[in-house]
Design a protein around this nucleic acid. Structure first.
Length: 491
RNA sequence: GCCGCAUUCGUCUAGAGGCCUAGGACACUUCCCUCUCAAGGAAGAGAUCAAGGGUUCGAAUCCCUUAUGCGGUACCA
């Protein structure tokens, strides 16, 4: 009795893949998995003017990065293919013709010029802009004339002149639209390509899609689709119009004001940008699943399997949500901390290599305990430990700590140089060696180690010093202390 | 203009008539821990549930009106 759940994600390849689209795809995927159904990827490439060849590889990479593997679609095929609309033109033509034959649609020969002029007039007269149905009732003779002129017509839907079209949305319930507000929309363009409206309806039906999700900006075109389904005599799938994702300030759509929020600060919007910025796909997945949906009043972190078990489209929020980068960062940091040491070391090594820093796995593994709770993104590693891999430079004055002077600072460096020459070099041994030196010089730990920190790292802020010294090794450390000493003496 | 959708702390949300003097999380503040920075722990501030009317013994939760925000109004998706 229960049909197999078939959910599709149907993006348009006009640009790089955006997080808003990723969230929709994620919900589709979760819903399909939850119901043991199929997740289908279909490419809606019917707009030849906005087509961007870089979009599809970017999309496929991003989906795979997030772990949203599709059961049918590009590169994997499936029995409902082809999955590119540009390869399905014959279907759209066939059904458009069928609609003309049944009287539900008609050919329109109006030029683009006439249509824009018409709209301008209507606007000037403060009327609702819309097609005036000039070609809806053409005589045989008129049609022949137009055809003789060689005009390539479009096919438009003959929308009922009155009455109400009822639409049912899973999240918003029943919505009524007055047919008089609807236009005779174009179904088939003069270039033989379908419009979005014809394309989705035909393909969703042919591919036996059971649940449609898409952004709420599509809600207004729902009645047109319902009318199309009725004209074709097809059963309407369940639809759920997902809330918009807003920029972090909570105003404006995230997708449209790319990289500019209300306060002028920049932010990421493309999935590949998040990947390059060092976000973990598992954190991104968790975060995205939580914008517009939640399990309860407490749960924030969930495993992929838990999402699959609990996700339901019915409980998706109806209101738009701002994309909180702060929260994403927090979540990403938590995911990084939860990674196993070997796993993290491997990811950090790859990040370093990609940034052009030569390092090996053993070094990164040794660094992991020192940095793991200091990383918000993988990318942070490069600036966190760069001094380990390259020469450092800093003003000599940086060595002198609060409430100490040059002489005391020189004494610190001398004491460390002597003590470290013979000390064991693991963290606890270093601790045992240096603590007594702090005492001996009558200083505070922060003063002594603060000075050493600058000498070893060139900075006043760093991961734990003893651990770093241990990783960097006696030779490097002694050399840097020596350099610090000369530097200070010369100042 | 017209049509549609939405409206709980700054932000994400819990909440489906009494459990709400509205809970959690991020961000923020203070303290503890501490070699710095983090992480962690503790505490705190922050929402008259957009406003106004109803319905009800009782409303954040149901109804109406208004306001605001967002979306649509293409041979774009």
């Amino acid at each position: 009795m229960n049909k197999e759940v078939r959910v599709r994600f149907a993006p348009s390849p006009t640009g790089y893949f955006h997080v808003g689209g990723a969230r929709t795809a994620l919900f589709d995927w979760l819903y399909a998995r939850h119901n043991n159904g199929k997740f289908i990827l279909r490419i809606e490439d019917t707009d030849r003017t906005r087509y961007n060849p870089a979009a599809i590889p970017d999309l496929l990479d991003a989906l795979r990065w997030l772990g949203l593997f599709w059961d049918e679609g590009p590169e994997v095929g499936g029995k409902y293919g082809p999955y590119y609309q540009s390869d399905r033109l014959h279907f759209y033509r066939q059904y458009a013709q069928q609609l003309v034959d049944s009287g539900h649609a008609y050919r329109c020969y109006c030029s683009a010029e006439r249509l824009t002029a018409l709209r301008d007039e209507q606007r000037a007269a403060k009327l609702s802009p819309g097609y005036d149905r000039h070609c809806r009732c053409l005589t045989q003779k008129q049609v022949q004339d137009y055809e003789a002129q060689g005009i390539q017509p479009v096919i438009r839907l003959a929308v009922p002149l009155e009455g109400i079209t009822v639409v049912e949305d899973l999240l918003r319930g029943r919505i009524e639209f007055d047919n008089r507000q609807l236009d005779d929309l174009v179904l088939l363009k003069s270039d033989g390509f379908p419009t979005y409206h014809l394309g989705v309806v035909v393909d969703d039906h042919l591919m036996e899609i059971t649940h449609i999700t898409r952004g709420e900006e599509w809600l207004s075109s729902m009645p047109k689709h319902v009318l199309l389904y009725q004209a074709l005599g097809w059963e309407m799938p369940v639809t759920a119009h997902l809330p918009t994702i807003l920029d972090p300030s909570g105003h404006g759509k995230l997708s449209k004001r790319k990289k500019q929020s209300a306060d002028g600060s920049e932010h990421l919007t493309y999935v590949h940008e998040f990947r390059e910025a060092g976000y973990l796909p598992e954190a991104m997945f968790n975060f995205l699943a939580m914008v517009g949906w939640s399990l309860d009043d407490k749960t924030e972190f969930m495993e992929r399997e838990d999402f699959i078990r609990h996700f339901s489209l019915e409980e998706v929020s109806r209101s738009a949500a701002a994309f909180s980068y702060d929260k994403l960062d927090h979540m990403n940091a938590a995911y990084i901390r939860s990674l196993g040491y070997n796993d993290l070391a491997g990811r950090l090594q790859r990040t370093m290599l990609a940034a052009g820093v030569k390092t090996d796995f053993a070094t990164m593994l040794a660094l992991v305990p020192l940095v793991r709770e200091r990383l918000e993104t993988l990318e942070d590693i490069t600036s966190l430990v760069d001094f380990v891999f390259q020469e450092i430079d800093y003003p000599a004055a940086l060595l002198i700590q609060d409430k100490t002077d040059k002489l005391q600072t020189l004494a610190i460096l001398e004491s460390a140089a002597v003590a470290l020459r013979t000390s064991g070099f693991d963290e606890t041994e270093l601790e045992q060696t240096l603590r007594p030196e702090v005492e001996r010089l009558g200083l505070k730990a922060r003063q002594y180690f603060g000075c050493l920190r600058v000498a070893c790292t060139g900075r006043t802020v760093s991961p734990p010093l003893m651990g770093l010294m241990s990783v960097m090794g006696r030779d490097t450390i002694l050399k840097r202390i020596q350099v610090a000493h000369s530097k200070l003496e010369a100042s």
